[in-house]
Amino acid sequence: MPGVGLPPLEQNVPPIALRNYGKWVDHEELRPGVLKHVAESGEACYTVRAGMPTNARVSTALARRIAGLADEFAEGHLRLTRRHSLELVGVDPARIDELTERLRKLGLPVGGTGRTFRNTVSCTGWIHCQFAATDAPAVAKAISDELYEDFLRERYPAKLKISISGCVNQCGEGSTADIGIIGVHRDLPRVIDEEVARCEIPLIVSVCPTGAIKPKPPKSVQVDPERCIHCVACAAPCQGMQIGDPETDGLAVVVGGKAGNSGSGPAFAKFVIPYLPNRPPRWPEVVQAVRRIVDLWVREARRDERIGDWISRIGWERFFQKTGLPVSEKHLDGYVLWPMSARTGVRFHW
């Protein structure tokens, strides 16, 4: 039965981390994917980081092989990072090359520290979710293949995080990343009257942010096509509000998000490409758009400038001009918080 909470630290944390708990003083990156942390006592802790299958989808077969490596190289412990990459902690420095090779044989590339392309974060998409407008795992795979070399080598001005969400619910956190891909629905929800009759109609009406949903007597609702903003809010509380249209669903590209406080501070990413169509299995135009933005950033940004910092220096005018992405009325925010992104004053970048 549930109700026990967290296991004690000793059950999962490696002894080297417990021995030096709170006493770490320094770290350096020896090469992409290999970190060295030094504790007060002088003890050094070597970490090897590797990319994991897209969407953090791990079969028990792979998990058991990873456990085998952890037993052999890291005293029986491993760690998963906040971006779901794998870390083996406390590795003997003399065996790092051997471990890298063994991980490579498992198909897991070593890298993703420092100024590199990091492991992608994506939601479950069409593998397992009813809301997804696009298949986040496949998009993640296509982008990861394209930027694979940049995971292994540091050729960026700063780190690059890419996250992919299958819909605007953003379980895949597209808006948090340097470059985010967010699935968008564009068609109206289909109202299945007999299903809606079995739902809490006042709740469906109240979750709609624009008041587009009105009750339709006796026991259903109707959607005002002029006011619907395709936010998917009504689909969650009622299975009679069905979304998803293969011909018009697609995805949008956002750039410039980051969480840390350095540089221009924490910010959400902004929508720069309002719509691209779904083209399974490899979404070539998404990959192309990402490649175009990344290449420009690599060429133009100063050292330590993440994409958001770079754009806040050069301005959105120049970003659009240099990437060649067209500006349309879709970029202007018209939703409730719109004054936050509308320009006041005439301090333009020309």
């Binding site: 296991p7 059950q11 999962n12 944390v13 490696p14 981390a17 994991m52 969407n55 953090a56 989808r57 791990v58 079969s59 028990t60 077969a61 998990a63 058991r64 990873i66 456990a67 085998g68 952890a70 037993d71 029986g76 412990h77 491993l78 760690r79 998963l80 990072t81 906040r82 779901h84 902690v89 479950t124």
Partner: peptide
Amino acid sequence: GTFYSTKTLRALCDVADRHGYGILHL
């Protein structure tokens, strides 16, 4: 700290194999 001992990870694999598809989201 999202640290796992291999014992925990293997126990997790056993559960997934015994009752589920045999796939984890990690």
